[in-house]
Simulated scan of single mutants.
Amino acid sequence: MPKNNDILNFQAFIPWVSTLKQLDTEVWTKPMSEGKWSISEMVSHIMNWDNHILTHILPFVRLGKEISFPNIDTYNRKAAVYAKSGITQSALIEEVIRTREKLVAQLVEMPDVLYNAQLNYSLAFLIEEFVVHDNVHKEQIMQFINKCNLE
């Protein structure tokens, strides 16, 4: 898939996450099922990975270095803790939007040769994978919201 399509798909998360501002706080913070994350934790999780791309992956790609990832479980727990830290629903959503906008802007500016560079992973591959990741979580959130609306 061409770079512009990847970025447009990645950017499409922004208007969708904005719609979550309308959610009742109880739905926003309620675990989606026993022992699972709430919508707020899942949204924080997505933002946390956007931050990792911004602060670690893009600088490594610019230097031609292999891309690295933190311990996934630890990193995901950090996002859940942040969602429960007292940050308001609207503040978290605005932070998610600003983070994604910053990431999209940097991806747009990334030269194609770096975007497609074959390190251990290419940025092109990772962005496609993160679009899929976003969509999986969006679907989980939408199913939960629909379930809450039926109750």
Rank of each mutant, 00 (worst) to 15 (best):
I97Y: 01
Y82P: 08
M1R: 14
T19K: 15
M32H: 10
V81C: 12
M32N: 12
L107E: 06
I72L: 11
H137F: 02
W28Y: 08
I87S: 04
H133I: 00
D134F: 07
A79S: 09
V108K: 00
N48R: 12
L123Q: 15
E128C: 14
E94V: 00
F10A: 13
E128I: 12
I57S: 02
H45S: 06
L58H: 01
D112N: 11
F69P: 06
H45R: 07
V136H: 13
Q106E: 08
V104M: 03
S122Y: 06
A12P: 06
P59S: 12
E34D: 14
S18A: 07
L150N: 05
P31V: 08
G64S: 03
P70V: 10
S38W: 07
H56G: 11
A105E: 09
P59G: 08
L23Q: 03
Q89E: 12
L119P: 00
E95K: 04
V131Q: 10
S90T: 15
C148D: 05
S18R: 06
R77V: 04
V17I: 05
Y121N: 05
V61I: 11
H137M: 00
N51G: 11
I145S: 04
Y75A: 09
S44D: 06
K138D: 00
S44Y: 04
K78T: 14
P59R: 04
I53G: 11
Q118V: 06
N51W: 00
N4G: 05
V61M: 10
L92E: 05
L23A: 08
L126W: 07
I39N: 01
A12S: 14
E41D: 13
